[in-house]
Design a protein around this nucleic acid. Structure first.
Length: 488
RNA sequence: GGUCGGAUGGCCGAGUGGCUAGGCAGUGGUCUGCAAAACCAUCUACACCGGUUCGAAUCCGGUUCCGACCUCCA
């Protein structure tokens, strides 16, 4: 089999993927911070790494995929001045902070389900791993890379950098980082501005807090990922993923923590998905283009001209490579919607094609071309372009311009099944409801309408069509008879 | 301001030196009681200015614009 190559941020190159253990793959992806409604920014990494997860499984690996839930202390998206947002929200609503976290965790899961994102193998929470986090801090202190000040513990980046490379992932130099740190307000406890918190003392009004050897407080935000990846995947594992915005400082700090505690660099491959813009702008509350996933699914946002099915969002994301930025707009999404429908119509058409003795067109290269694109750092847009080339062949075959043998039809079915369904997870929305109950009824109605048409009783035929239309059922007359479907 | 990445046809979006990416829209056809849909064919490109090369969207330099990160905090 051909080599599967992935882009490794650590080296800046595409590398052949070779797991530490030949048969199994361990991967960790930074999950959501559950302080608010899931939005588009959550969809991209979830879907990117879902594709990777599915592909690795398809390749025959036993995959353990850990994606965390961060439910400890939070920050709102932009134009907000930090602070513990779960705590603040909880106070405002008179809720226990965990009620807030749990509410949004549930929302996140619902959205992921709609997007057909497979569940990770383990989905640990930061709050459920306080003991492990405290133990890791102790270990880092014991190894001399952290210090305690006034009930908080900080990672000593300068000391660490003497024997390690802080900046190995983000290619930053510590001197530049020192230079760039603006003059700090004097009350910082940190020895150096580049140091980061492993444990923060909780101020009296801070309601999310846990006991520790250093007093009541809460863990620093980089720590949970190091702790939980280590607990479930080991000190060394295969892939660590997340958004590009996390490269620095989050993932850089993770590497530092793991090296400081275990002398191991955690992941072998670091993969990062690029960001999303909306009509060319970044998404932000202050710009009025902050759109939640529910709003996409329901079409309930001023900027949206219509609702978009979760599969349209998923398909749209796959039309771009994961390391490119992607721009959302109504035009682009509507184009994606039509393309997706075309793809699925062709899959249906393929299943109805009557096989001929011999094919009049050579389709033998499609499988390897698709595989090659997928193996080239998950180039989903190229795979899709080949699938659409196949769509064209299927449609022309239906029109009688080509013949396809039974073998070739089966080959096409296999490719669509592998890519469209198994790996890309683009399930056909029309098939997931209980339409079968209605089938008999609808075929009876359409039969009556066909008879009216034969009798040139257009009034009755149109009445049926218009009446069903008002019931949200669309009738289309095709060469092979009328079809019906729910309107989107 | 610093570091890094990007700028492709009406809209998205692949593509790293010569060969049609693909989707949507547009245009022309086919089908059709009407409507809608569907199908086929097909046009428009590589931000700007220089340079390297037989040849550049692709390499090099500069310019403009855009994005991410650079901070307490996830």
């Amino acid at each position: 089999m051909e080599d599967f190559k992935i882009h490794n941020t650590l080296t800046g190159n595409k590398e052949v993927f070779k797991p530490i253990k030949a048969e199994s793959v361990t991967m960790y992806v930074c999950g959501p911070t559950v302080y608010g409604e899931p939005h588009l920014g959550h969809a991209r990494p979830a879907i990117t790494f879902d594709i990777l997860f599915r592909y690795l499984k398809f390749l025959g690996y036993k995959v353990r995929y850990v994606r965390n839930i961060t439910d400890v202390g939070h920050l709102l998206n932009d134009a907000d001045e930090g602070g513990d947002k779960i705590g603040e929200k909880a106070k405002a609503l008179q809720l226990e902070p965990m009620e807030v976290a749990h509410f949004y965790t549930k929302k996140y899961h619902e959205s992921m389900y709609k997007l057909n994102v497979d569940n990770p193998s383990i989905e640990p929470t930061a709050s459920g791993h306080m003991i492990e986090q405290i133990e890791m801090i102790k270990k880092i202190i014991d190894n001399g890379f952290a210090y305690e000040v006034n009930g908080s513990v900080y990672f000593d980046v300068v000391k660490y950098n003497e024997t390690n490379n802080y900046g190995i992932l983000s290619r930053r130099k510590i001197e530049d980082l020192m230079d760039n740190s603006r003059e700090l307000d004097g009350q910082s406890d940190k020895k150096n501005p580049v140091d980061f918190a492993l444990w923060k003392k909780a101020s009296p009004e801070h309601i999310m807090r846990w006991p520790s050897p250093w007093g009541n407080g809460f863990p620093g935000w980089h720590l949970e990922c190091s702790t939980m990846s280590c607990k479930y995947l080991g000190e060394e594992f295969d892939i660590h993923g997340g958004g590009m915005d996390l490269v620095f400082p989050h993932h850089e700090a993770e590497i530092a923590q793991c090296c400081a505690a275990n002398k191991k660099q955690a992941a072998k491959y670091w993969m990062h998905n690029n960001m999303i813009t909306i009509s060319g702008q970044k998404m932000g509350k202050s710009l009025g283009n902050f759109i939640t996933l529910d709003e996409f699914f329901n079409g309930t946002h001023d900027k949206l001209e219509q609702a978009y099915h979760p599969m349209v969002i998923r398909f749209f994301l796959l039309q771009a490579h994961y390391r490119s930025t992607i721009d959302f707009s109504n035009d682009a999404l509507q184009a994606a919607e039509k393309g997706l429908i075309r793809l699925f119509n062709a899959i249906k058409t393929l299943n109805d094609l009557s096989p001929k003795d011999k094919s009049t067109i050579d389709i033998s290269s499609f499988k390897s071309k698709c595989d090659e694109a997928m193996n080239d750092d998950l180039n989903t847009p190229i795979v899709l372009s080949y699938l659409f080339d196949m769509v064209k062949i299927i449609n022309s075959t239906k029109e009688g311009k080509h013949d396809l043998s039974g073998e070739d039809i089966e080959q096409f079915q296999k490719i669509f099944d592998k890519y469209a369904i198994t790996i890309f997870g683009l399930c056909n929305s029309e098939e997931d409801n209980n339409a079968s109950d209605l089938d008999g009824l609808m075929s009876l109605i359409l039969e009556i309408r066909d008879q009216s048409k034969e009798n040139k009783d257009w009034a009755t035929a149109d009445k049926i069509r218009d009446g069903l239309n008002n019931l949200n059922i669309e009738i289309k007359d095709t060469k092979d008879g009328a079809t019906w479907s729910y309107k989107k």
